[in-house]
Design a protein around this nucleic acid. Structure first.
Lengths: 224, 224
DNA sequence: TCTAATATTATCAAATTGTTAACCACATGC
DNA sequence: GCATGTGGTTAACAATTTGATAATATTAGA
């Protein structure tokens, strides 16, 4: 598990700052605050947050200025930036987004919705790359279509791979033969009784690892 | 330059569909539309859009259902999904975002703002600022259309280049034949079964480097 | 023990991909 | 206008892999 995500909030209204801070902390985020644009820049440099929530109207440098300054620096090219403003006119919102922000939210906003939006942003950000199951020494990469056991790549044919991926998607769960047929073969195709067995056999053989258990009369399950 | 980004819009109000379609097309996006949930699923499967804009209240399957169904399929795990709804109650919005959507917009919305939001989403998604890929001894310059291997320039034809550039954009990832067709050939053109193979063959030949692996029944992947 | 369920093995047809050559469209230079 | 070259697609066939089945052996459990 990675360390908690860091969020910096900049707003000149202490009340709002506090409410948001409380809600985000409750959700497990590490939160920093700033009361104006210059403080926001300082804090950003100091803590390198993963997400910055910027009010637009602040004394001194406003939010858009801050965003511009940040986006010019390589260190903040990829940082998530969200505006949170009472200004809801079209021009400002468009300008805000074109500055390179990832979202533009308008006050008043429910803390829960803010939280959902923040979660959605992080969800998208983290989606980069990793589509793989890690099960002990066994790695199943759906994107690369590779099984890796103890650093050895194992080549499975399509059906074999899909079957193993299915079983391994819920370790311990017993998949009925019907479920397996539906998931791997689809509902249209009809195949004989022994087809599943044969594929299971091939997986067991290639993996050389006792990880698929037969539950007689029911189905199969994956377990290390 | 890669092909235009594809956007699918699903809404049961023809007027809205048309306005949004027009605005997005003007901006250079390739737009598909659907009048209800089921149609949205069909179109999504058919065109593999980069972004899907879903109305929530639609006859038959509603937007949230559609999102749920899409997110369960590997092919749509990474697709951008945005809700656009007249429902502005907190519960729905939160549920929408937790379903795995990237944003939740409320009607009425100014076309310009929608455009800005869409642009912002694509901006974040495309980490590609770098027009040249460096992969071991292989350099791919998307701007100049030049491949260089061990200091030798290799001339590839356009389709060959785009195909290689696509595969190399995510080393290791297996690109389905469908994905390849959509990305390199576009959705309008229909080409025969062997076309991809022939191009792959030409690349392999010109590159004289074993970097493209066949995953039978699935697709191709680039790997050094 | 006895039986139904599963494992194993070999085999073969079907599906998938590789390879080559031919064809057409289009651009280029003469 | 005419040869020439290039890029892109397809057709035809070869090579390969896959996955289903049949036949048989083995096992778990009532």
């Amino acid at each position: 598990m990675s360390t908690a995500k860091k969020i910096l909030i900049a707003d000149d209204e202490p009340d709002i700052l506090e409410i948001i801070q409380f809600n985000l902390q409750t959700e497990g985020y590490e939160v920093f605050t700033a009361k104006n644009g210059d403080e926001a820049l300082e804090q950003a440099k100091k803590y390198q947050p993963d997400l910055i929530i910027l009010d637009i109207m602040m004394p001194g440098k406003n939010g858009i200025d801050v965003c511009n300054i940040l986006r010019m620096q390589p260190a903040f090219k990829e940082t998530l930036i969200v505006f949170l403003s009472a200004l809801s006119d079209e021009g400002t919102e468009i300008r805000g987004l074109e500055t390179g922000a990832d979202d533009y939210l308008t006050k008043p906003i429910s803390p829960k919705i803010l939280l959902s939006k923040v979660n959605a942003l992080f969800r998208r950000l983290n989606k980069e790359g990793n589509n793989l199951l890690q099960l002990g020494d066994l790695k199943i990469d759906r994107e690369k279509y590779i099984i890796n056991y103890l650093d050895n790549d194992i080549i499975l044919a399509r059906k074999e791979f899909e079957l193993l991926a299915l079983l391994a998607s819920k370790p311990g769960k017993v998949f009925l033969r019907n479920e397996i047929l539906n998931q791997v073969w689809g509902t249209e195709v009809i195949v004989g009784d022994r087809t599943i067995d044969v594929h299971i056999r091939k997986i067991r053989q290639k993996l050389d690892l006792d990880c698929i258990t037969t539950v007689k009369g029911v189905g199969y399950k994956f377990e290390l």
